[in-house]
Amino acid sequence: MHKSALISYAHLPRAHHDRHVLTSTVDVFGAAHWLLAERAPQPGDVRPFDALVVSVHPSGDVERTELSAVRARWPHLDRLPDGGFVVAASRARQYEDANQVQVFDALGRETSSFFVGDAIEHLLVDETGHIWVGHFDENPIGIRRWSASGWLAWTSDGAAIPGLFDCYALNVSGTVAWACPYTDFPLVEIRPNRPNRPVRVRANRVRGAHAVAVHGGRVAFYGGYGEERDRLVHAELTQTSVEPTDTGLLTLPDGSAPGRRRLVGRGSRIYVQAEPFTAWGVFDLNS
Rank of each mutant, 00 (worst) to 15 (best):
A119V: 02
V176E: 09
G217F: 00
V103I: 13
P13D: 11
M1S: 14
I161M: 04
W74P: 00
A274R: 13
H215E: 10
W151S: 13
L187V: 12
S68W: 08
P181I: 11
E236H: 10
G267K: 08
A274F: 04
R194M: 04
S113C: 14
G267H: 04
G129I: 05
T23H: 05
G248P: 05
A98T: 07
F114P: 08
T247I: 15
W151Y: 03
R262G: 11
V199G: 11
R191V: 14
G117V: 02
H210Y: 07
T155G: 13
L107A: 15
G216R: 05
A40M: 09
H215T: 04
T245F: 04
D105C: 08
D78C: 11
V62Q: 15
Y271F: 15
Y222D: 06
V116H: 06
V282L: 10
P258D: 02
N196E: 14
Y271A: 05
L170E: 02
E63D: 12
A159S: 13
P43A: 13
G255C: 04
S90G: 13
G117M: 01
M1G: 15
R91Q: 12
E243H: 07
W151F: 07
H210T: 08
P81Y: 06
D230H: 07
L152F: 07
G30R: 00
S173L: 07
V28H: 09
A279M: 11
A257V: 10
V101R: 02
D284Q: 05
V56E: 12
S113D: 11
